[in-house]
């Protein structure tokens, strides 16, 4: 196995594109190294992206935030402006693993690992985050939900890597939230995860919303029916029930010993309601 630590994005892309065997980009390594230790993957090339200039930074621009692919999740929790604008996304990033893992892991890695139960992804999908992908043919920007295509699989082509994740500047009266359900209370794999992002109008009615669910389908689900159920409402009881119903109906979960289909559907609805409540409160407070 070859380990490379290039200083530029172009070199990283070239290394990944030119390798005939299996090649992996590595940020924190908290997924990849575990899979390698477990004998699940045997890469011919690992390209460490942490030395690439700019990839370890969170940049605030006029349009929002640019989170480099090598930014550890713990740094997101320490970025005050990001936390104020996107508390749900930061919460989700802060739920991955333990504090030690959070010092290594990245949301770009969490996304590209393509686990259906990834914690940060439902929050990113709810937030309508975009992804800057660099590859041999240059850069392209795609929606975050277009990256994972199935368990362990992404839409990225050979040689492509995620350079950064973009979060828009928040309009007034916006809030987001992420909740997950696990057998214990921390450091565990989500049975269900729910992310909600919404913006209120001047009268406190929900003007726009996005609802995303994790661990209930092969990829994270963007549930447009659920968003429709609450847009135009003040999140009254009927709207919440409609939201929960839409979420439960959208789930296509698996049965395993962590949770059955029925239970995951139930909890998806409950979590979506609760996350919506938190997001609504946050939006009202701003």
């Amino acid at each position: 196995m070859l380990y490379a630590r290039p200083g530029t994005l172009e070199e990283a892309v070239r290394l990944l594109a030119d390798t005939r065997g299996s090649a992996f980009a590595m940020a924190g390594g908290s997924d990849l190294l575990v899979r390698m230790k477990g004998g699940n993957v045997e890469p011919d090339l690992v390209v460490d992206i942490k030395a690439i200039a700019g990839l370890g930074e969170i940049k605030q621009t006029g349009d929002g935030f640019l989170i480099g692919a090598a930014v550890p999740c713990v740094a997101m929790g320490e970025a005050a402006a990001l936390k104020t604008a996107w508390p749900g996304v930061v919460e989700a990033a802060s739920l991955i693993g333990s504090r030690q893992i959070q010092g290594r892991c990245t949301i770009a890695g969490n996304l590209c690992n393509a686990s259906p139960a990834a914690d940060s992804v439902p929050a990113l999908v709810a937030a309508a985050a975009k992804v800057v992908v660099a590859g041999p043919k240059g850069r392209r920007t795609i929606a975050v939900e277009d990256v994972p295509v199935g368990p362990g699989k992404t839409s990225l082509a050979r040689g492509e890597i995620v350079e950064a994740i973009l979060l828009d500047k928040r309009p007034q009266r916006s809030g987001d939230a992420y909740l997950r359900f696990i057998p214990r209370s921390e450091m565990d794999i989500a049975v269900v995860g729910a992310g909600v992002s919404l913006t209120l109008d001047a009268n406190g009615r929900i003007e726009s919303a996005r609802v995303a669910l994790g661990a209930v389908a092969p990829t994270v689900l963007l549930v447009t029916e659920a968003a429709k159920a609450i847009v135009g409402t003040k999140l009254d009881a009927a709207a919440l029930e409609a939201l929960a119903g839409a979420c439960s109906a959208a789930c296509r979960p698996i049965d395993d010993k962590r949770g059955t289909v029925e239970f995951r559907k139930q909890v998806a609805g409950v979590l979506a309601k609760r996350a919506a409540g938190i997001a609504y409160e946050r939006a009202g407070a701003k």
């Binding site: 057998p183 214990r184 209370s185 921390e186 450091m187 794999i189 010993k257």
Partner: peptide, 16 residues
């Protein structure tokens, strides 16, 4: 054995 690791055998931790 389906619960053959700490991923699947749910030991209590301090927060439980």
């Amino acid at each position: 054995l389906l619960s053959g690791s700490y991923m699947d055998y749910c030991l209590p931790r301090a927060d439980n």
